[in-house]
Computed example of a mutant assay.
Amino acid sequence: MQLKGLTSLARGQPGILHHITPSLVSFEYTRGVIRKPHTLIFVGGLGDGLGTVEYLSDIVQALEPTEWSVFGLVLSCSYGGWGMGRLGNDIDEIAHTVNYVREYKTPQFGPGKVVIMGHSTGSQDVMHYINCPNPRPAHPIFDRDWIPVVRPEVDGAIMQAPVSDREGILWVVKCGTERDSPETMRKIYNKAVEDARRHTYEDHNSVDTLVPLSVTGRIGYPTSAPVSSRRFLSLVSPESPEKPEEDDLFSSDLSNQRLEDTFGQVGKRGLLRQQLLVLYSGRDQSVPPWVDKEALLKRWKSAIDVHGKQFWSPHSMVIPNASHALSDSDQKEPRRILVERMTRYLHDILQG
């Protein structure tokens, strides 16, 4: 029986399951007919896992006749684990995957290109990968026995729907919900921030505390996903824009100095060999109406190209009418544009 409304990934897609490490896996979408020396590593957003981003099926189909294969990466914080995760751990796992891909493919096909792509909060992983010190700084609590990971260079990087979690939450607080008025939402939000600050860790500062599910569920997070006080404060970044937290990379009110400290560091780190492609959704449900998307992309371009080399891909754009994950019923044209921009960008990557 054929099920209607399912993507090709949901119906079944051939490929290879790779064990990157004993606890880290990735699925390579490939039929094994054409040599595939080049790789696109895909990282989803909060709550995503293997095959949960629908437009990935369009990308896989478009790249099927090419020499590119797609690795769908399942991070340790995928699915419901995002509330306990952190960007530093994510980029370590991406680094392991890049190394694995090169070690796996080079003996078969020779050197190939590797591009990392993030959807939504996966975009924060991509930006963190190419802009922070290498190896990254250790977390004072969770990295006491951590072995530093030196991140390998990547040929390209793509950010799709790089939205601000902080501005998304503030929009919910400002507008209220069907259950709670804006005044009630503000009280809930303020108390959650206050409690998270006061009790971020417990057991001699060795483990995370959790924000009650009854609170996170009312401000927009799934009630099935536990969120630590640490990650909550990073996502909502209550002292922004003056003192943004780690996850606050894409807010529209961030200072030029903050953009210099993030986008502006890409050239200095030397981890991005070619260019960054940014595909912002023009009708993103997670973006408040006060955000000027075109102006925001111009600021990012100015920040990343500040040191002479042109890291901003000319194929970057705000995709008209695109929703956050391009999953609505009217997204055929936005998905076509996304795939077109991506394939042209990957062609540029091959040209070097």
Results as ranks from 00 to 15, higher is better:
Gln2Arg: 15
Ser8Tyr: 12
Ser8Leu: 14
Leu24Ala: 11
Thr30Phe: 04
Thr52Ala: 00
Asp58Tyr: 15
Glu64Arg: 14
Gly83Val: 06
Met84Phe: 08
Asp90Phe: 07
Thr97Gly: 01
Lys105Ser: 11
Thr106Met: 06
Gly112Tyr: 00
Val114Pro: 02
Val115Met: 05
Asn134Ile: 08
Pro135Ala: 09
Asp145Gly: 10
Ile147Met: 10
Glu153Thr: 12
Ser164Pro: 04
Ser164His: 06
Ile169Ser: 03
Trp171Asn: 14
Val172Arg: 11
Val173Phe: 08
Glu183Asp: 14
Lys187Trp: 08
Ile188His: 00
Asn190Gly: 03
Glu194Lys: 08
Asp195Cys: 10
Arg198Gln: 11
His199Trp: 14
Leu210Ala: 09
Pro212Trp: 05
Ser224Trp: 15
Ala225Val: 14
Val227Leu: 15
Val227Gly: 09
Leu235Asn: 13
Pro241Lys: 00
Glu242Phe: 06
Glu246Pro: 01
Asp248Tyr: 08
Leu249Asn: 05
Leu249Cys: 04
Ser251Asp: 01
Gln265Pro: 02
Gly267Cys: 12
Gly267Glu: 13
Leu279Val: 03
Tyr280Trp: 05
Arg283Cys: 09
Ser286Asp: 11
Pro289Asp: 13
Asp292Ala: 09
Ala295Thr: 04
Leu296Asp: 03
Lys298Thr: 08
Lys298Met: 09
Ser316Tyr: 03
His324Ile: 01
Pro334Trp: 01
Pro334Ile: 03
Met342Phe: 07
Met342Lys: 06
